[in-house]
Structure formats: C-alpha cells, structure tokens
Simulated scan of single mutants.
Amino acid sequence: MGRVTTHRPVLRLDGGRVARRSDTLTVEEPLELRVDGRALAVTMRTPGHDVELAHGFLLTEGVIQAAADVAVARYCDGKGPDGRNTYNVLDVALAAGVPPPDPGVERNFYTTSSCGVCGKAALDAVRLRTRFSPSGDPARVSAATLSGLPAALREAQRVFASTGGLHAAGLFRADGSPLAVREDVGRHNAVDKVLGWALLHGLTPLAGCVLLVSGRASFELVQKAAMAGVPVLAAVSAPSSLAVELAEEQGMTLVGFLRGETMNVYTGAERIELDAGVGAERESEVVG
C-alpha cells in the first residue's frame, strides 16, 4: 500500500534564524477507479482506505446503493519506476444485475483534491436523486453535543497532527458517540471514505447521524451527504449559497462555523435542541 506521509528537506526561516530540517508532508497520489474494467474516474487522494473511497464515490454518484451491489474490489497492476505495484488503480466489479454507470450523463470524471464537482457538464447532473433522502428523518441533536464534535474530530486526526495538511470527515450518532473518522488531502475524498465505511458496515441510510467536515460545506458535500441519507451536516467553516439551497431542498440540517459553543444553523433548525434554560433570541430585522 502507498504511504500516507513522506519527508522532504526544507530551509526553515524564523526571523533572523536559518536552519535546515526535515518536514513531514501528506502524500497526494492519483487513484484511477475502474468499474468492470472500464476507467470511470481519477481522483487525487491520500493513499489508504481506497476500497471505502470507491464505495463511497459510487454511492454518492448513484451507481450503487448497498455493499451487495459490488461483487469485488481489487487493485490492478500499476507499476511504478521501481517496478513495484503503486496501488493506484482500483477495479470494482459490480454484482450481477447492477447496471453500469449511466453513459448518458456527461461528466469529466477527473477530480482534484480541492474540488470533486469540477467537470460536471451541467448543474442538473449533480442534483442526483436518492432513495435515502433525509427529509423525513426525525433525528434531533443538542447544541451542546454539536459543540463537542470538532474537538473529537481533531483528536482522531492522527496524520493531520504531524502534517497539518489533511481534511477530515467524521460520522457521529446524534448523542455524539463516534462511528468513524477518515482523513484525506481532499475534502470530498474524506467524505467518500467515511460514507464508504458506513456502506460496507450496513449503516446506510445514515438515519440519526451527524456528518462533520473539517473545512467548508460545499454543494458537493451536501449532495454526498444527501445520497447517504445523512440528516445533519456540520462544518467548521462556511457553506456556499448553493450548499444551503440544496440542503433546504433535501430537508437536511446544515450547520456552519461550528466553533466551540458558536454555530450558524442555515437549514433544518428544528433538529437542533437548545440547552435547558436557553431561549431563542429575538432578532430585529435590519433593513439595508
């Protein structure tokens, strides 16, 4: 398997001091995903949990809906300069009766570590339908529980602690108990890995769960959460306008700027329980 981190020499400048040292970097390598022997996607990712990544990607693209839809996932021979297998080509064989990816949906399936939606032919192509829509999920989560999740996520980010160069996605139950955390150089890959883990463990749809991401909440991350039936998506940074629109359409609770006891609830506020003795403040309307 590929390495998660590597070391490079750097020249460290600190005020008037100069020193040479070794720095730990997050590894970024391409993964080519094939379905039944045909190339489907290439994504730049951090090696590790590639089978989960493949399952999560295929789930959120609407290709599969259950772990049983995949017969086998195996690495293909991909030789590096040293003749060793790079483990950068993964072939997924679909189970009998599972239709292949729809060739009628035009998409450039090359995705970078910073953006997984790039190359979609049209916006409508990514508004995928799912039988796992979270709109009817009665889950409720307390504001106090949400406040504690970022610290729990950071504690589980082992590679981030040494490199500072990874995003993370964590799945939690509504009571705050952790299910799984995955790291990757790409936000969307981290989400695919953790959703793939859930699929492989028979937990989809993820009713009554919270998905926490370490960066911003983009349209694509909301779409991925919806495809897995996640009722609550929280981010430590900002959501985009389109992310908020999609979360509202899907009946999902979207929380942004989750930092300590402060947070913005953009959609689905009915799922958030305030602590005892705390009332909602009446805000005056500001007319600009």
Rank of each mutant, 00 (worst) to 15 (best):
T111P: 00
R154Q: 15
G116D: 03
S133K: 06
G116K: 05
R74H: 15
A169S: 12
T130N: 05
R182N: 09
T163K: 00
L31I: 11
V141T: 11
V70L: 13
G288D: 03
L203A: 12
A198R: 03
G119N: 02
A226H: 05
L254F: 07
L199M: 12
G119P: 01
P9N: 04
A234V: 12
P205N: 13
P231F: 12
H49Q: 15
V10E: 09
G186K: 00
A68I: 09
S135H: 09
E32K: 04
G251N: 10
S135F: 09
V213Y: 01
V105R: 14
P100N: 10
M252H: 10
A125R: 02
A276I: 05
V72K: 13
E248S: 13
A122F: 04
P178F: 10
L25F: 15
T46C: 09
G279Q: 10
A152V: 11
D82V: 11
R187V: 04
L128I: 08
A228W: 00
R84P: 00
E270K: 12
T112M: 02
G97A: 09
V92W: 04
P99Q: 06
S22I: 15
G37V: 07
L242F: 07
Q157W: 00
R84E: 09
P103F: 02
A276E: 15
L166D: 03
K224M: 09
G288R: 09
P47W: 10
P101A: 05
R38L: 09
L11R: 14
S142F: 00
H201S: 14
D184L: 01
E273I: 13
S22C: 04
G83T: 10
E52Y: 15
V210K: 04
D175K: 06
R38D: 08
D77L: 15
A276C: 04
E32C: 05
E285D: 02
V27F: 01
R216Y: 03
R84D: 06
